[in-house]
């Protein structure tokens, strides 16, 4: 590295941050002068150490419940390995955790075993990290604050789902676990149990509402088909119940509560 061009030098230094073990001493001493009291490798070491510490800390703060569930040491091992394989590719730190749950899933140690023989705690971590990422994203996503909300007097055709509404289906009660951690408790890892949720942000407060599988399917259909009427028909066909029954249940059991919770907005206000 005696006459490196600017791009050469930057590529070399970026690799030295991401994979510190691969840098040889001669190239370090050829690139940097020694510091006042430490040698060139120790000077570079300040960047290398801080690189991993600062990004690991950001992941801990973006995934507080997953970090709690794994414990500090194990979470840091996961985080360090993740940052090595998926270094940040965005100008914003908010994207740092985007691929984390997918990365755990792709790199689980038992991924070659049949599904029935896999460790269930890893499934729990994947689902918990997926839920945390959804909450983190929703926190700063475009929302409906400052615009009018429906009051329930509207016709169904006037209503559309809140664009940022998150519908989730998890193999473990991750929303429960997350909020136990938030409350300062130390919940045990829960056993498998399907959890269906809707997550809404209203007045900058993010709220997770548990749903029945039936209601989850209905809201998924509204999201996909773009209309409440079409979703009611879809649900009637799927459940083999008369359309009128399904429509009745929507009107009397859930409609007003979901509107008050902020699941829907008026089409014109989107």
């Amino acid at each position: 590295m005696t006459t490196a061009t600017l791009p050469d030098m930057q590529r070399w230094m970026m690799e030295a941050l991401i994979a510190p073990g691969r840098v040889d001493g001669a190239s370090v001493a050829g690139t940097f002068k020694p510091g006042a009291h430490i040698d060139a490798a120790a000077c570079l070491g300040i960047y290398q150490r801080s690189y991993i510490l600062r990004l690991r800390q950001c992941l801990i703060e973006q995934f507080p419940a997953t970090a709690h569930a794994l414990g500090q040491d194990l979470f840091c091992d996961f985080a360090d390995e993740y940052l090595r394989s998926c270094p940040s590719d965005s100008y914003t730190l908010y994207e740092l955790g985007r691929r984390f749950a997918g990365w755990i899933s792709d790199n689980r140690p038992d991924k070659d075993l049949p599904e029935s023989e896999r460790e269930s705690w890893i499934d729990f971590m994947i689902d918990l990290a997926t839920y945390e990422r959804a909450l983190f994203h929703l926190f700063d996503a475009p929302g409906h604050e400052g615009k009018p909300w429906p009051d329930g007097q509207e016709a169904d055709a006037e209503l559309t789902l809140l664009p940022s509404l998150v519908l989730g289906h998890y193999r473990f009660p991750v929303a429960w676990y997350y909020h136990e951690v938030r409350a300062g408790k130390s919940p045990a890892h829960p056993g498998p149990a399907s959890q269906y949720v809707a997550v809404v942000r209203r007045d900058f407060q993010t709220t997770t509402y548990p749903l029945s599988p039936f209601h989850h399917r209905f809201l998924m259909a509204v999201q996909q088909l773009g209309s409440i009427d079409a979703a009611l028909e879809d649900l009637a066909a799927w459940s083999q119940r008369p359309l009128e029954d399904v429509r009745n249940s929507w009107r009397t059991d859930v409609r007003q509560g979901w509107i008050d919770a902020g699941f829907f907005i008026r089409r014109g206000d989107a």
Partner: peptide
């Protein structure tokens, strides 16, 4: 990194 957990809650309908 914002404290997202602080502004989150769980509620039943």
């Amino acid at each position: 990194v914002p404290n997202v957990m602080g502004d989150s809650r769980m509620q039943t309908l």
